[in-house]
Design a protein around this nucleic acid. Structure first.
Lengths: 146, 146
DNA sequence: TTATTTTGAGACAAATTCGTCTTAAATAAT
DNA sequence: ATTATTTAAGACGAATTTGTCTCAAAATAA
C-alpha cells in the first residue's frame, strides 16, 4: 500500500530534518540533507523546488545558501506539503477509482472509505512540523533508511 | 491518494459484479464483465488469471466457459483479492517508506499510521463479497464508471 | 474432423513515477 | 574580475504500472 509518493515522503523527511536539527531561519543546504537522508540530490532539489515555488520554502543561491521555511514550523502542517507534491485532490479519491464517486453515486465501499480518508486528512491537517520535530528530538526517531 | 492498484480495483469490481448479478457456481465470461464494467478485456483477463492461479477462482475454457468463485462468496474477503494482486505485504508499509520501520525503530508518523492501517486491514479482512454484493443489489450501488 | 468460442501465456507498447545528468543563474569569497 | 558554491531548469533515462496484441490451448458444437 503506497499512500504517499516518493516525492511527498522525501519532502516530508527533508522538512522534518530541518525542524529537528536546525534553528528556524537557517538556510540549510540541499546537499547536506540529501547526504544525511540518503536521498538523490537532484531529485530532492526538484522536490524542494516545488515547495519553494508554492511559497512553502524560501531559497537562497550561492555559498552558504540553501532553503529555509517561509513560515514558522508550527504553522506548517503535513497536509500543506502533501497537497503541493501529490496534488490538491489527494484526499478526494475513490478506493475503486470510480469517477464521481460520492454521496450521490457511491461505490460499494464508499461509506467505509469516506470515514477512513477523513480521519487521515484530519491527521495530516492537524499535525505540524513542530509536533513531529519535537517527537523526533525527544525520542530519537529516525528519518534515515539505515 | 492511490491506495489500491488498478489491478486490485478491477479485480474487486469484477468479483462484485459476479456476486451481485450471477448465481454462485455460474461460469461468467470475462468478455461480458469487461464490457459491462468498461475494463480492457485483456487486462482483466490477466488479472483474473492471477486470481485463478492463486486458487480464488476456477476457470473453464471453451464456449459458455468463463470463471467462477472457487469458494462461496461469504468466505471470500476483500483482503484475499488485494493480497494476491497487490502483494502479501500490502498492509505492512511505512508512510515514509523507511525500511524496517516498526515498534523497535519507528518513523515520526509510525504511531498514527499503525492505527489507521490496522483499521484498514481489519475492514478488508472482515468484509466479504456477499456483504458488498447485497449492498449493491439493495441500494443499486454502481460498479461502472459512467 | 473442422470451425467456433473461450481462457492461458507472453511479448510488446504506453503512461506514469522515479531518478540522473548537464547547463544556467545567482551569490559570495578571494 | 575570477573562481567556487549553491539553487533553477529542463532534458534525458530507468523502473514500474497499465494496457494492447498475437498466438496457443482447451472445450464445445456442427
Amino acid at each position: 500500500m503506497k499512500v504517499l509518493s516518493k516525492a511527498s515522503a522525501y519532502g516530508l523527511r527533508a522538512l522534518l530534518y530541518i525542524v529537528a536539527h536546525k534553528k528556524h531561519g537557517d538556510y540549510v543546504s540541499i546537499r547536506e540533507m540529501s547526504e544525511e537522508l540518503n536521498i538523490s540530490f537532484h531529485f530532492l532539489t526538484k522536490i524542494l523546488q516545488s515547495l519553494t515555488q508554492q511559497g512553502l520554502l524560501e531559497s537562497y543561491r550561492g555559498p552558504n545558501g540553501g532553503i529555509t521555511l517561509k513560515r514558522p514550523p508550527n504553522e506548517i502542517f503535513l497536509i500543506d506539503v502533501v497537497k503541493i507534491l501529490d496534488g490538491e485532490d489527494f484526499f478526494d479519491t475513490c478506493l475503486l477509482s470510480l469517477p464521481g464517486c460520492g454521496e450521490a453515486e457511491p461505490c460499494p465501499v464508499h461509506d467505509f472509505w469516506k470515514v477512513t480518508k477523513a480521519a487521515l486528512k484530519n491527521e495530516f491537517a492537524s499535525t505540524s512540523l513542530t509536533e513531529l520535530g519535537t517527537k523526533i528530538s525527544e525520542n530519537r526517531l529516525r528519518l534515515t533508511d539505515d
